[in-house]
Each structure stands twice: as structure tokens, then as C-alpha cells.
């Protein structure tokens, strides 16, 4: 019984249909990666250029970061797949809780009164 757990398999149990599906998925991942690289480039260009005002750059960069976050979580980490209900709820809870934490530590530290 337990010895089987340490034995490699000779073949994959995937059918041809499943193999095609997984190859298609892999191509989608490549596209996701290309998009991420593009977003990163955009962010660096926005920050590096002197023409854009800070009031535009900061929200823009943060928006790009959030898009990347979703690409990583939902594509690279497969949160979009089925059987990910619990991971989704935990991860979303965590992300929801980061917002008040960061806002409080940035703004509510006694320097400016709200």
C-alpha cells in the first residue's frame, strides 16, 4: 500500500482530449505571461517618464499591479479552476483585510486628523 506512494508512474492517465486541453491551457499561460510583461513595462515607463504627473502615475501603477495580482492568482495559481472555492474565499478574505490595514497604517497615524 504505502510503498506505492513512492513509486513513479509509467504513463499518464490523461486521455488525448485531456492532453489537448492541457496544452491549450499552457498556451493561455504564455499569453498571461506576455500580458504581465507588458503591464510591467507600462508601469516602469509611467514611473520613469517626467511628463506624467504623480496624481496620474500613482493610481495608474497601482491599477496595473492589481491586474497583475489577478493574473498571477487566477492563471498562474489556478484560482479560476474548479475545486478552488475554499482557496478563493481564504485568499479574498486576506486581500479584503489588507485594505484597512494598509490604509490605517498610512493615514491614521496621528499626523493628519481625519
Amino acid at each position: 500500500m504505502a510503498e506505492d506512494m513512492e513509486q513513479p508512474f509509467e504513463k499518464s492517465s490523461m486521455s488525448n482530449e485531456e492532453k489537448r486541453k492541457i496544452n491549450r491551457e499552457q498556451r493561455v499561460q504564455m499569453i498571461a505571461f506576455a500580458v504581465m510583461i507588458g503591464l510591467t513595462l507600462l508601469a516602469f515607463i509611467a514611473a520613469g517618464s517626467d511628463m506624467l504627473p504623480g496624481t496620474f502615475t500613482i493610481p495608474f501603477i497601482l491599477l496595473l499591479a492589481v491586474v497583475q495580482l489577478f493574473l498571477q492568482l487566477y492563471y498562474f495559481m489556478h484560482l479560476k479552476d474548479k475545486d478552488h472555492g475554499w482557496p478563493n474565499s481564504f485568499m479574498i478574505s486576506g486581500l479584503v483585510l489588507t485594505a484597512p490595514t494598509i490604509v490605517a497604517l498610512m493615514l491614521l497615524i496621528g499626523i493628519v486628523k481625519f
Partner: peptide, 8 residues
């Protein structure tokens, strides 16, 4: 009582 303001 720390004084972070009335709205907060």
C-alpha cells in the same frame, strides 16, 4: 483617545 480624528 489617541487623537486620530473624529471621522475615524
Amino acid at each position: 483617545t489617541v487623537g486620530i480624528g473624529p471621522i475615524a
